[in-house]
Design a protein around this nucleic acid. Sequence first.
DNA 1: ATATTTGTTTGGAACGTTCCAATAGCTATC
DNA 2: GATAGCTATTGGAACGTTCCAAACAAATAT
Lengths: 338, 338
Amino acid sequence: MGSHSKNKNVTVLDVAKVAGVSKSTVSLVLTQSEKVSEKSKLKVQKAMDEIGYVYNRDAASLRSRRSNLVAIVINDLTNPYAAQLVVGLEKHISEMGLFSMIVNSGEDVERQQRLVRNLKEYNVVAFIICPAPGTTAKWTNDLNNQGFPVINIMREISGSKVPTVLPDNVNGTSLATQHLLSKGFRRIAFLGGNEAISDYHERLEGYVSAMKKGKVRSPKKYQIQSETNRHGGRQALEKALKIEPDLEAIVCFSDVVAYGAIEKMRELGKKPGKEIAVVGFDDLKDSRLMSPSLSSVKIDADKIGAATCQILKKIREQKKPRSKILVDIELIERDSSQ
Amino acid sequence: MGSHSKNKNVTVLDVAKVAGVSKSTVSLVLTQSEKVSEKSKLKVQKAMDEIGYVYNRDAASLRSRRSNLVAIVINDLTNPYAAQLVVGLEKHISEMGLFSMIVNSGEDVERQQRLVRNLKEYNVVAFIICPAPGTTAKWTNDLNNQGFPVINIMREISGSKVPTVLPDNVNGTSLATQHLLSKGFRRIAFLGGNEAISDYHERLEGYVSAMKKGKVRSPKKYQIQSETNRHGGRQALEKALKIEPDLEAIVCFSDVVAYGAIEKMRELGKKPGKEIAVVGFDDLKDSRLMSPSLSSVKIDADKIGAATCQILKKIREQKKPRSKILVDIELIERDSSQ
DNA sequence: ATATTTGTTTGGAACGTTCCAATAGCTATC
DNA sequence: GATAGCTATTGGAACGTTCCAAACAAATAT
């Protein structure tokens, strides 16, 4: 039966006493200083194990005026790509010796604002934000000017001065569209997404420019907006088929939208990949394994994480980071677009 | 142009000076004490706005020996139900005036251990853990005895003394199976899940007992384990049809497994809901909107969150919490099982 | 008028760490 | 053998808050 009491904590002083050194030496060990002898280091570590010492980050952070917390403010945890992204970010952040504080804005600007206000109180190293729709440049800039480094990811805020990490959206849908054109498809629609988010405009632009470059007719009505979830995909496909019964292929705003569209095709008796070719965006884990396997534009969450941490490193070194990193994408051709 | 400097922070002393009160009074306002006059309170709040004061939780937490952080250690953020669960938990936790620290073990015990070791350093109020397979009772008990309250959710650890919140798994699959039996199906298989996790055993038990109660043959070979993702569902269904070509219905370990199974059916030319009835578990948001809409056993993430916080409240009040809360489930009948 | 109660406000100490400047213990140099 | 130049170690102060016991102010009771 262990002790439930929290009356008296084990502190560096206790460690110091047991190890036979001063508290300062213990502190040097804790901060992994170079200038502590191997002998002292071992003594201290042994003492810590022995008496069950737990480092108190509150005290450390208070005194040193820097924490090891990085805030990740994600737009929607229940979106599978967002979840994948968080995992990728977390990995790189922890490799930097930092700890991620993940919060979910749920695409709600006010909630986002509230969360960030709270997170400031923890003295976080930086805010990594995938901004909710409606986030203003002023807000991100103000936050930055208050001394909190901000990095925007996935979505761009026009006028914002904070460094931003983005996938090469334009190139992504452009490659996807070119791929479909090269397979001989002509009546190609763009499904899903909505104007409130910057990536919609970029992905749409890639599609439009590729169609133009291919000299293929692409009327406005081929651009069908929807919610960026499965249900949105279903609705968008239904609408698309009403507008263009001879639809040959679709470029989707995201894999999730593609999933919905494929479901709807089946419901309407159209064979996905056979009668209507499909390319998604994100390349979720499931896309490789479904049937037909889904062609998709892969955004490597690991690369996004790496790029974000590259900026984070610069910031910690007090150097000026690159203001924008475009992470390259890759078109993965699978059965849904043959 | 704001100041980038962090040389000198604005503290309670500055607020006190501006408000014309003592730092102690400012502190009382910050901790929302009853015994500060309305007049002082307003003066202090005005002063805080005026000079842009940011509360320093490190200092507060250090002095008061209690933080407002609750650790949520989730098994797999990329699992859609887990993400939904986190959102439900977060809501209730924030309603208690606490802040969630979400970390992802990725079903890896060692990573889980490392994360918890780190989180201890933040002096968290409690650990809410959906334990990775392989988590031992000793580990959770030790953690608890060290003075860190632990609450297990979704998965039970036999021999563990920590309070646990679970959905009524047995009843869930039992209802699902009874429902299929009442529709006249007889050759009903149980698909997905694996023995490393406690909920598998419970869900399997519900199915087995309902089949027995219905006096319907249910050989061991009707129980087909798999990974608990989409791909696992696909494989499980394929295997099931090899073993029993005249399969009439399936009870799935989770909705995600059901999604995979449904995909595979389509690939093999079997109509889900028409030729093979399907019931899932979790009731993900998508399940309502897909086609055919998926019957499922709903675990209300909000209820799990509420039950967990009920325990958390008891713990904070130093009272003994209930050692186990069984959250009721609900069978949602939709088109996939008519 | 004085004593008592009630309710607010207050300065000093404390939380557990890191920072800093000073010191001690070396070794190498002259 | 004295001095300089390292390197490793050290005690005291500081970070910004809350706790505590004491002081004060206002209202009520005697």
